[in-house]
Design a protein around this nucleic acid. Sequence first.
DNA 1: ATAGCCTATGTAAACGGTTACATTTTGTCT
DNA 2: AGACAAAATGTAACCGTTTACATAGGCTAT
Lengths: 341, 341
Amino acid sequence: MKKDKVNIYDIAEMAGVSIATVSRVMNGSDKVSEKTRKKVMEVIEREDFTPNAFAQGLGLHTMHTVGILVPDISDPYMSAAVAWIEKGLSENGYDCILSCSGFEQEGKQRHAEMLLSKSVDALIFLGSTYAGSGRNPDETEYIRKAAAQVPVFTINGYVEGANIYSSVNADEEAVYEVTKKLIRKGRRKPVFLTDSGSYSALKKRKGFERALKECGIEADESSMIHVRNTIYGVRDALLSRKKSFDAVIAANDIIAVGAVKYANTAKRKLPEELEIVGYNNSGLVRVCEPELSSIDNKTEKMCRDTVKRMIEVLENEDPVENKKVVISCEFVERGTTDIGG
Amino acid sequence: MKKDKVNIYDIAEMAGVSIATVSRVMNGSDKVSEKTRKKVMEVIEREDFTPNAFAQGLGLHTMHTVGILVPDISDPYMSAAVAWIEKGLSENGYDCILSCSGFEQEGKQRHAEMLLSKSVDALIFLGSTYAGSGRNPDETEYIRKAAAQVPVFTINGYVEGANIYSSVNADEEAVYEVTKKLIRKGRRKPVFLTDSGSYSALKKRKGFERALKECGIEADESSMIHVRNTIYGVRDALLSRKKSFDAVIAANDIIAVGAVKYANTAKRKLPEELEIVGYNNSGLVRVCEPELSSIDNKTEKMCRDTVKRMIEVLENEDPVENKKVVISCEFVERGTTDIGG
DNA sequence: ATAGCCTATGTAAACGGTTACATTTTGTCT
DNA sequence: AGACAAAATGTAACCGTTTACATAGGCTAT
């Protein structure tokens, strides 16, 4: 099916020079006389020549390609992050291979191996790992295995290990601060909603618990609710809840939107009777009515930062000192709270 | 950084066989005696040997990899589509390289060339092209160029040409039908909102105009409004509009949400005083309040279908007959209209 | 024993670039 | 004009696989 493409030999012949000269022209560098360069460039453009990346890779030992592993690209937070990462990589002459691994460890592992077999220069794991959850210490074993071959970067999932670089949000602090504010304002029955036991979810939960404890509010198990990551799932869970509550801190914006749906359905006025805080400050916040107050976890900054460090690791031989970068969040107030931005 | 890896020569030497035999063992196929296979496998496992992908790519001319070009992955419609495509490809043993090209032709072209240089087996162009707009016939020249090298599949952007396969929605029909319904119900001043002059936008517009003409409503230019693809952009455009209108048909859900924002801001009751129809039936429809009536363009079906045809084209030599597949849409009624689902 | 055939294995030629090194061309200085 | 350096260009080795083809070795049938 695939037609034969022109290769460097064809170009060389047409331009009446050697392949070395064509290669030199292609790579801009080196010393080629202006006359020859022009002649060769003409042929290259006329024939629409683009070098074969594999052949280049063989010689150069790099394909300038980075693998991105994302559990679910249709999640707005993930897709926004991928967009930023792709942009950053592209600006630096790298391309990305995307792989949607699902949330299961087995899929992640398989996809990571697939990416490695494509000789990516580095790997980015996007989204939460379960590292440190204590439930199963080898849940991140495959990340360490991958790191034996290429530098690995994790975003919002911290894994300790050689050749592994992590960027995480100060999730605990962020939730702690916002919960405190809610309590200070008079809320006495806040609940925390999450859909997973991921690394970052655990941090958020910790922040929530700490704030409650400090304020002398009993943090019983029932104030930390496990929900499905869908709008209706959350709404229904809240509708059927027996115990009362007067504030919701959600682990992501989708869950928060579900809480807003609940409030609208149950006719509880926002923010007077109930306050809701989302997480991620994603595109959803403005779609929601009233618009959603949310904790901005600085996706763009985090992604840009990750890409920058990656380029450093890949292109400088001196080791990058910062293995773990913590990026703080910022609470953005909109219509679902009234605690001061 | 990358460790020096063992290669096939090392394995061959250690196992006391030739590289050809090792290669045969690796690829499972061919006839190798059980004894040799075992001996070689042992060394392979012990040394953790994985073949170099560059070299494989050079030899094989296929990496079971498909390139996906998407203008903007953070758009919920696009990311949902990518998720479906990735899933389908993955199920068939293919991987995908994602490239976010932006909406400009120049970027699309550059990214397409990049993907081709990576020896992808096929290319998928996601989202609207400007083919047939008449404004510039070579706007799709680069797609044809790409098709000279590998089969090209376009989703919602029809391009005529050899080796090009398209899947498009019956956009004109869908908009025509829903507009008719609105008019029949009594709406006399519908407006159509779009952010682009893309192929599918033009079809939608055509359907809108046709419905108006048939019903004897004057379709002046001002009833087809060009807006930015942001919620506030649309809201503000509508707020500042002088001429009155009583129904909105939007080219996508984001625009429709903007119209809902407008209605909420201007205190126009939905759906009594104003009816709004979105397009794509994306995740946003349920976030919106009231929930958004939208035209479902069957993203999953379209993506699955595209992947299926692609596999056929790639793996069977007999030509696939259907170069252009049209997939019909379905209007889904929610809170922003009252015309009957 | 030997011709004849399979089967298992090895040899070497692609694949399409990069690049160290060799060679030719050009230009300068005396 | 001749010597020499510098600049431009060419040659060929190398990267690590796959695979068509060649060959060696084992078996059966005569």
